[in-house]
Simulated assay, not measured.
Amino acid sequence: MAEHIEVIIRSIMAFTILLIGARLLGKQLISQMNTMDFIAAISLGSITANLAFNTTIAIHHFLLAFFIFIFVSLVTAFISMKNRKARKFFAGDPTILIQNGRVLEANMRKMRYTFDYLNQQLRERDVFNIEEVLFAIIEPNGTLTVLKKPQYRTVTKQDLNLPAPPETKLPIELIMDGEILEKNLQENDLSHCWLASEVKKRNYSLNDVAYAVLSPNGNVYIDTYRDHIVSPIDKE
Rank of each mutant, 00 (worst) to 15 (best):
F89T: 12
D93I: 09
P94D: 03
P94M: 06
T95M: 13
I96F: 03
N100G: 12
L104G: 02
L104Q: 12
E105A: 07
A106H: 13
A106R: 14
N107E: 14
N107C: 02
R109E: 11
K110W: 00
K110H: 05
K110C: 02
R112A: 06
Y113I: 13
Y113D: 08
T114A: 05
F115A: 05
D116G: 13
D116P: 04
Y117M: 10
L118N: 11
N119S: 05
L122A: 08
R123P: 07
E124M: 14
E124Q: 15
R125Q: 15
D126C: 02
V127A: 05
V127N: 11
F128H: 11
N129D: 15
I130Y: 09
I130K: 10
E132L: 07
V133Q: 02
V133P: 00
L134H: 14
F135K: 11
F135M: 12
A136I: 09
P140L: 05
G142M: 11
G142F: 09
T143S: 15
T143D: 15
T145Q: 11
V146M: 03
L147Y: 01
L147Q: 09
L147A: 04
K148I: 01
K149V: 03
P150F: 07
P150Q: 10
Q151S: 14
Q151I: 13
R153H: 01
T154N: 00
V155D: 01
K157F: 09
A164L: 13
A164C: 07
E167K: 10
K169L: 08
K169D: 07
L170Y: 05
I172G: 10
L174C: 07
I175S: 03
G178P: 06
G178Y: 12
G178W: 13
I180V: 15
I180D: 09
K183M: 06
N184H: 13
Q186F: 01
Q186P: 01
Q186C: 02
D189N: 15
L190F: 02
H192C: 00
H192P: 00
A196H: 14
E198F: 00
E198T: 01
K200D: 08
N203W: 01
N203H: 10
L206S: 02
N207I: 09
N207Y: 06
D208S: 07
V209M: 03
V209C: 05
V209K: 04
A210T: 05
Y211S: 12
L214P: 06
L214C: 06
L214W: 05
L214G: 06
S215T: 14
S215D: 13
P216S: 11
G218D: 00
I222Q: 01
D223K: 02
D223A: 10
T224W: 06
H228L: 08
H228Y: 14
H228M: 07
I229S: 06
I229V: 15
V230S: 07
V230Q: 03
V230G: 00
P232H: 03
I233P: 02
D234Y: 15
K235H: 12
E236L: 14
